[in-house]
Simulated assay, not measured.
Amino acid sequence: MGLRKKNRSPPVLSHEFVIQNHADTVSCLAMIILLGLMFEITAKFAIMFITVQYNVTQVLDVKNDPVNLYHYGPKDVATVFFYLLIIVILHALIQEYILDKMNRRLHLSKTKHSKFNESGQLAAFYLFSFIWGCSILTAEDFSKNPTFLWDGYPHTHMVFQVKFFYICQIAYWLHALPELYFQKVRKEDIPRQLNYISLYVVHISGAYILNLYRLGVVLLVPHYLVELLFHASRLFYFSDENKQKGFTLWALLFVIARLLTLTLSVLTFGFGLPRTKNQGFSLVEGNFNVLTIRMSCLAAICLTQAWMMWKFINFQLKKWREHSQKQATKKKTASPKSKPHKKEHTRGAANGILKPDDKTSPRVRRVKNS
């Protein structure tokens, strides 16, 4: 496949061999699944991996044509796995042909090199997901009817774009786990990345399984916009440390996004869902509109937002301290150096005994003999 350039040939099945050739291996596996479509025996299994499953044809209106809608099921695991492979390949392409070339030009340190790769990958993903999410919200007319977050719950059926959006979202964040190994992420960075990867997987999968996909998309779009701005600002900062204006805008939008998330979550779980007609718990109908689940979801969102605000405040305080230290250092270097005290050299001093100057010394008075 040749996705990565190999400078040397490490031993087969060694760690270095797996890391260097993981994109090629994944490409071969994806090709095997695609080739399964060519044979009748394997086609029904290959389709389960490639196409979106559980489609249902419904007639929403007598005047309109039938519409294909989808719901979720166990076969979605196979679909998520296949698109996880595709995302691993795309990750390797972005790394090889974009980020590595930029790194060679910037000559970054190891720490900045790792953060640059992380921000580059995430910025590309957030940009794509933000545009995709906006197109979904535009089609759903959320701005005209905000109550669609809870009206008609449970929302067991979704259009193709919504289901495929969630399949790709879950696949992306699951692919980030093996990428910690493939990208040789530093040990001190692994806990931080595991935290936010786990939060994304839990929250997105929870919205998908609990039939809260409408609320999930609405909350993801502003969140991805804020994260996109942060990682884009960090990329500009690595290219030129004087470019820090983006962080100021990010800080403002970060707080607004947290308040918006809390507001919509309280409206949905505290006021909207309790007033809908379908109350109760039913796995068959996909109804999870009971007090326990509503409060658990609201508590999970509130705790996550509180944790994010705590990390944000600590980050801002750290930056403020660093800025204060830099300003103090600049003042010290800019202030004039204290001049050494001039030693008063007395003329005619020798061996620590001061001798009066010849010109100013009083003449020795002679005593007259009477």
Rank of each mutant, 00 (worst) to 15 (best):
L219C: 07
L220K: 09
P222R: 08
P222A: 09
P222T: 07
Y224T: 11
Y224K: 04
L225E: 00
E227H: 05
L228N: 07
H231Q: 05
H231M: 11
A232K: 01
R234M: 12
L235S: 03
F236S: 05
F238Y: 15
S239M: 15
D240N: 15
E241H: 10
Q244C: 14
F247K: 03
T248G: 13
L249Q: 01
L249P: 05
L253H: 09
L253K: 06
L259N: 03
L260R: 04
T261Y: 02
T263L: 10
S265P: 03
V266A: 11
T268R: 05
F269R: 00
F269A: 07
F271I: 13
R275V: 08
T276V: 14
Q279C: 01
S282R: 06
V284L: 08
E285T: 14
G286Q: 11
N287M: 13
N287Q: 07
F288Q: 08
V290G: 05
L291H: 10
T292I: 15
S296M: 10
C297P: 05
A299Y: 09
I301Y: 01
I301S: 01
C302K: 01
L303N: 04
Q305S: 07
M309A: 06
W310H: 09
I313C: 07
Q316P: 00
Q316V: 01
L317A: 10
K318Y: 08
E322D: 15
Q327P: 05
A334I: 07
S335D: 12
